[in-house]
């Protein structure tokens, strides 16, 4: 693998709440790393003895193998009073980290994969929405995404048309803003933070910042684990494992405009760890 622009990005490597002095052995883009708490309690990530740049944010420890040019992306809602922050925990998936993100950006699969929770037949239509690559922030955004959902959130009791905004602030991270049933006018924040272990293997760390005073923390964790585990069996059966950036390899439709923009952005920025550039 040649040097990839992704080397200078930040990646989640563990839960802050699970840090301990013994350290956790894991990997980042093929390099073995160790995540531990230092004697003063701060997070310390090392790769073959080298101390890596570290951030502690959004419930997770973040590290980079390279020299990050940018600060870790902002999620202003993470500082908003009244929200509950949910560490969903890690799930390993045998797929490209980029495939995991792309699936997170997709709504058309809801009726078939998250049946009776996030979607159900016959409500399968994906209406037009807006997608852009915001050059100033260097992020992919999809807005005005609407979909009919039988049970949109743990706190939802019946079917509603839910509105979403999707944001890709880093090649292996996505932030979803979603209609918040108990608090109209606010958005629930659901993220997918992906740790690339290898080009075709990743650890996925979902995390949420919700307005929900009703559900227990365990209920919130289980709801999101349910959704992600329904996706996992899809992700492990896509061929090829790597995300094809060659436009001839997979056929998008209007419903896939977020994924089209994501793939274009990855290619333009040289974020190709986990991607397949030419059809094989």
């Amino acid at each position: 693998m040649t040097q990839d622009a992704m080397i200078d990005e930040w990646y989640p490597v563990g839960l802050v709440s699970r840090l301990d002095g013994n350290g956790r052995k894991t990997a980042l883009m093929g390099e073995p790393i160790e995540v531990a708490s230092d004697t003063d309690g701060s997070a310390r990530v090392t790769s073959k003895g080298r101390v890596l740049p570290v951030r502690v944010r959004y419930g997770h420890v973040w590290a980079s193998l390279g020299q990050p040019q940018k600060e870790l992306f902002a999620i202003p809602e993470a500082d908003q009073p009244g929200r509950r922050f949910v560490d969903v925990g890690v799930v390993r998936v045998r797929c490209s980290p980029l495939r995991a993100v792309e699936n997170f950006l997709d709504i058309a699969h809801f009726p078939f994969v998250h049946t009776d929770i996030l979607g159900s037949e016959p409500h399968t239509e994906v209406q037009n929405y807006k997608v852009e690559i915001r050059e100033d922030a260097d992020e992919v955004w999809a807005t005005q995404v609407k979909f009919y959902q039988p049970q949109a959130a743990r706190s939802a009791s019946g079917g509603i048309t839910t509105e979403y905004m999707y944001r890709v602030p880093a090649p292996t991270c996505s932030v979803l803003y979603k209609t918040c049933p108990p608090r109209p006018g606010e958005w629930d924040v659901i993220t997918l933070f992906v740790q690339p272990l290898a080009e075709d293997l990743c650890d996925v760390w979902p995390w949420m910042a919700l307005f929900d005073d009703e559900s227990s923390m365990t209920d919130l964790i289980h709801f999101q684990q349910t959704i992600f585990l329904q996706d996992r069996s899809i992700l492990e059966n896509q061929i090829p494992r790597l995300l094809p950036l060659d436009p001839g390899m997979e056929i998008p439709t209007r419903a896939d405009l977020t994924s089209v923009a994501y793939r274009r952005w990855l290619k333009r920025r040289g974020y190709t760890y986990g991607a397949q550039l030419v059809a094989q």
Binding site: Q238, I239, E250, P252
Partner: peptide, 11 residues
């Protein structure tokens, strides 16, 4: 293989 997103059609 589904030509849309590469999913195995046998599933």
């Amino acid at each position: 293989r589904c030509p849309h997103r590469g999913m195995r059609l046998s599933h």
